[in-house]
Amino acid sequence: MARSLCNVCNFALNSCVCAAVSLLNNHVKVIILQHPSEQKVTKNTAKLLPLSLTNCQIIHGESEADFTQLNSLPSRSTVLLYPHQHAIFLDDKPALSALEPITHLIVIDGTWKKAYKILQLTPLLQQFTAVSFKQLPKNKYAIRKAPRADSLSTLEAIAHSLQLIEGLNPAPLYALLDALIDKQTALMPPHVKARYFAPNE
Rank of each mutant, 00 (worst) to 15 (best):
I158Y: 07
I158K: 08
I158W: 08
A159E: 03
A159L: 07
H160E: 11
H160R: 11
H160Y: 15
S161N: 06
L162I: 00
L162N: 04
L162A: 04
Q163K: 15
L164E: 08
L164Y: 03
L164F: 06
I165F: 05
I165R: 07
I165H: 05
I165W: 04
E166K: 04
E166N: 04
E166R: 02
G167H: 05
G167Q: 06
G167S: 04
L168D: 03
L168A: 07
L168R: 10
L168V: 09
N169I: 04
N169Y: 03
N169T: 04
P170E: 13
P170T: 12
P170V: 12
A171E: 13
A171K: 15
A171S: 14
A171C: 07
P172G: 08
P172R: 13
P172W: 13
L173T: 01
L173A: 03
L173K: 09
Y174K: 07
Y174C: 07
A175T: 05
A175V: 01
A175G: 03
A175C: 06
L176A: 07
L176H: 06
L177M: 15
L177C: 11
L177D: 07
L177N: 11
D178M: 04
A179G: 07
A179R: 11
A179W: 04
A179Y: 03
A179Q: 11
A179H: 11
L180F: 02
L180S: 04
L180D: 02
I181N: 06
I181A: 08
I181R: 14
D182R: 13
D182T: 03
D182Y: 09
K183Y: 01
Q184D: 09
Q184T: 04
Q184I: 10
T185Y: 10
T185R: 12
T185L: 09
T185N: 09
A186R: 15
A186D: 13
A186S: 15
L187P: 01
L187H: 14
M188C: 06
M188W: 06
M188H: 09
M188Q: 14
P189C: 10
P190K: 15
P190V: 12
P190G: 10
P190S: 15
P190Q: 15
H191V: 01
H191G: 00
H191S: 11
V192H: 14
V192W: 09
K193V: 00
K193Y: 08
A194P: 01
A194N: 08
A194L: 09
A194K: 14
R195P: 00
R195Y: 06
Y196S: 02
Y196Q: 05
Y196T: 00
Y196L: 02
Y196P: 02
F197Q: 11
F197N: 10
F197W: 12
A198M: 11
A198Q: 10
A198T: 01
P199I: 04
P199N: 10
P199Q: 12
P199D: 14
P199L: 10
N200A: 14
N200Q: 15
N200R: 15
